[in-house]
Nucleic acid binder design. Structure first.
Length: 726
DNA sequence: TAAGGGCTGATTTTT
DNA sequence: TCAGCCCTTA
């Protein structure tokens, strides 16, 4: 229950200090989440502030719901559902749904992800008849995003710019922004910028929100960018009731526009403030903290502080030296097996790497060894083509002005509306100055000079019909109806390409996630589902209750903790990255990233590197161990030289097959399985049951897995998970 | 218009 | 290695 005695003196000070801005420097593992939750509880019970008047910004949605839960636990009698807790992006999205009509969008606006934005940039570049090689959509999109994060407009950029190219890019920027609006769409940056625009144009709206959010709390403040700072500032600079929590040593998003000055110059921006430092660490061993400190103090630009702990010395940090990236994966698996069942469960481990591409050799080895693992991030479910296609239908149903999504689906599944027809349709829309969607019925009429009238009319009627159901149907009914109408099952399963089965089972998974959403949020609809999907962070999609080893990038692991941490690929050029090691500022950020990695560990850290590494599957490059290993005092390290001759993952060198203990893998007992059902197998992945012999757990199943692998398995041992029927 | 084959360039990190 | 792009062919 809520009791301030449970806090240390500094934490208590952070919780109870009110009446002006508070900046909490919270070192890794110093209990900052505790401080934030207690502070909210304190505001509600001691200050009497209604929960709906509190705004708390977190870095992930997962952190937001955890925070709500923890407050609920402290104060069972209050309704935490009324609190405003979320990421900057989700809070802004919610605000925009209510306010965006003031600046010429409708509340049905679509949120474009990076891929959508890039497509739009590409269209704009094409529209200007520019060469895509000279004007690369990807890099121009990155540039536009950076400009927006610096609060620059096309005009200010063109003025500041020097040459011809800058003028052109300014034009692309402007056209991009205008087209977004025509599409009734916003990109990730707009989510932060448009509320600022509304506050500026309608000061009375700003006042409304200032009054609503009487106390503002921000977590991970060191990673806020300029628009986020402006947002917080706009809301709280009048009442000055704000508390931000952060750690300059953990600032790792500089490349995304995060401005470390936000935290270092906090007092300049908000006026006289209380500064509180939390330096007692409750998470890690002394060894881990000492190592982390030795590394981070190499940074010149940081506030002086030193974490300390009452925890034990703990074990030394193990350094694993390997021949190659495959060897590294093998060593990792051995280390896991060595520990497994003795002290730790699989979910106690996290494997961290600098780049997503590094997960591949690890995955191969884990799969071979039968060790369950989960990857956070990487190629995302919602980025898969088949998923984006279906989502694009839903988006157009909600927002027909979204021409990016419309173009995506107009010929999916193929209905003979190819390049030519789409170009003519676009020309018609441009001539008549109407949205693409409205051009479809016109084009479908005789005399418009477009051949594929029937196909166009068919598509239009389909959409019109589905749109009628939008109001009356639940979200999951709508998506089922859609899939039926599109005959997607036939489309995927009859495809010659052998990934049809996998694609179809992904669609089924999408349907069940809509169902789940609808179940959890009976009052919400497809619109809210789409919003949630586009604003989920990688961590939000992670199910940490699974009995499996987790793998993710060092960026994703921020804010989390694990008993055992492996950091792999510690080689010069990879971590730190080549391009970052050439610039002092960037090298400092790499170092902070390493610091974040080490300080996630409660008990044990493994650092690993490979003497050679293959990139792009090409030749193996000679690598040098990362300087970060050398920065750690030798007495904290236990260096394991592995035998140089042994080759891992070698067919001629078979190893014992790892059999998970019954308790290690929780199987959802699949009682009766029928032909045609989709199942998931730990080793082989997704598959379709093509034959069943016998019944119950003795049944012999023939399963066609994705990638063309066909296996005969006995139901009892196969440990299958059923992919829900749609 | 659809589909398949071959070529090329990419790996930082993410809402 | 591999995904995305362009080109060819049916």
């Amino acid at each position: 229950m809520f009791n301030l005695e449970k806090l240390n003196a500094k934490q208590r000070e952070a919780v109870t200090t009110l009446g002006g801005p508070v900046l909490v420097f919270a070192g890794a593992g110093s209990g900052k989440t505790r401080v934030l939750t207690y502070k909210i509880a304190y505001l509600v019970t001691e200050v009497g502030l209604p929960p709906e008047n509190i705004l708390a910004v977190t870095f992930t949605n997962k952190a937001a719901s955890e925070m709500k839960e923890r407050v609920q636990h402290l104060l069972p009698e209050i309704d935490t559902g009324r609190m405003n807790v979320g990421t900057f992006h989700s809070i802004s999205a919610r605000l925009l749904r209510r306010e965006i009509h003031r600046i010429g969008y409708t509340p049905d606006f679509t949120i474009y992800d990076q891929a959508d934005s890039r497509l739009l940039v590409k269209q704009v570049i094409n529209g200007f008849s520019l060469d895509l090689k000279q004007y690369d959509p990807g890099s121009i999109q990155t540039l536009i995003s950076r400009l927006k994060n610096n609060l620059e407009s096309p005009d200010s950029f063109r003025e500041a710019g020097s040459g011809y190219r800058d003028k052109i890019i300014g034009n692309i920027f402007q056209q991009y922004q205008e087209t977004l609006k025509e599409n009734n769409a916003v990109d990730f940056d707009d989510l932060l910028l448009l509320p600022l625009l509304i506050f500026e144009k309608f000061p009375e709206r700003r006042q409304v929100y200032q009054q609503q959010f009487q106390y503002v709390l921000v977590d991970e403040y060191q990673d806020t960018n300029r628009p986020q700072f402006e947002f917080v500032h706009a809301l709280s600079s009048e009442h000055r009731e704000i508390c931000v929590v952060g750690d300059d040593d953990q600032s790792i998003y500089g490349w995304r526009g995060a401005d470390i000055r936000n935290i270092l110059d906090f007092e300049d921006a908000f006026g006289e403030s209380k500064l509180i430092k939390l330096e007692q660490n409750y998470r890690s061993t002394k060894t881990i903290l000492e190592a982390a400190h030795a590394v981070i103090t190499k940074n010149v630009h940081r506030k002086e502080k030193k974490l300390w702990t009452e925890n034990s010395d703990g074990r030394k940090i193990t350094v694993l030296e390997n021949n190659s990236e495959r060897h590294e994966a093998g060593t990792l698996v051995s280390a896991l097996r060595w520990n497994d069942g003795r002290e730790y469960k699989l979910s106690d481990y996290v494997v961290l790497y600098r780049t997503n591409a590094q997960s591949r050799p690890l995955e191969d080895e884990f799969r071979k060894s039968g060790i369950p693992y989960i990857i956070v991030g990487g190629v995302k479910f919602y980025d898969r083509k088949e998923i984006k296609d279906v989502l694009a239908y839903l988006r157009v149903l909600v927002n027909p002005l979204d021409s990016i999504s419309l173009e995506r689906i107009i010929n999916f599944p193929p209905r003979k509306l190819g390049r030519t027809t789409i170009d003519r349709l676009k020309a018609l829309a441009a001539d008549e100055n109407i949205p693409l969607y409205e051009a479809i019925p016109k084009a479908a009429k005789a005399g418009a000079g477009i051949r594929q009238q029937k196909a166009l009319a068919g598509f239009y009627h389909l959409m019109k019909d589905l749109r009628k159901r939008l109001q009356e149907c639940t979200a999951d009914d709508l998506i089922r109806l859609l899939i039926e109408r599109l005959e997607l099952e036939n489309y995927y399963l009859e495809q010659a390409a052998n990934d049809g089965v996998e694609r179809w089972s992904n669609i089924i998974e999408l349907v069940s996630s809509v169902s789940e959403f609808q179940e959890n949020n009976p009052e919400k609809g497809i619109k809210e589902f789409l919003e949630e999907v586009s604003l989920l962070t990688d961590i939000d999609r992670w199910n940490d209750s699974t009995r499996a080893v987790t793998m993710m990038t060092l960026h994703s692991v921020k804010g989390l903790e694990f008993p055992v941490v492996f950091i792999v690929g510690l080689e010069e050029g990879l971590f730190p990255l080549q391009r970052s090691s050439e610039d002092d500022k960037e090298l400092e950020e790499e170092r902070r990233l390493f610091y974040v990695g080490i300080t996630r560990a409660r008990e044990k850290v493994y650092l690993s590197y490979a003497r050679t590494r293959r990139r792009y599957g090409g030749e193996a490059l000679e690598m040098m161990p990362s300087q970060f290993i050398g920065d750690i005092p030798a007495e904290l390290l236990d260096i394991r030289m592995t035998r140089t001759s042994r080759r891992f993952s070698d067919e001629r060198n078979p190893r014992k097959v790892y059999l998970p203990k019954p308790s290690a893998v929780k199987s959802t007992k699949v009682t009766q399985i029928n032909e045609g059902e989709f199942v998931f197998h730990k080793l082989f992945g997704k598959g379709r049951v093509v034959e069943v012999r016998g019944s119950g757990e003795e049944a012999k199943l023939t399963i066609a897995f994705t990638g063309g692998v066909v296996k005969k398995l006995i139901a009892k041992y196969a440990n299958l998970r059923r992919l829900s029927k749609y």
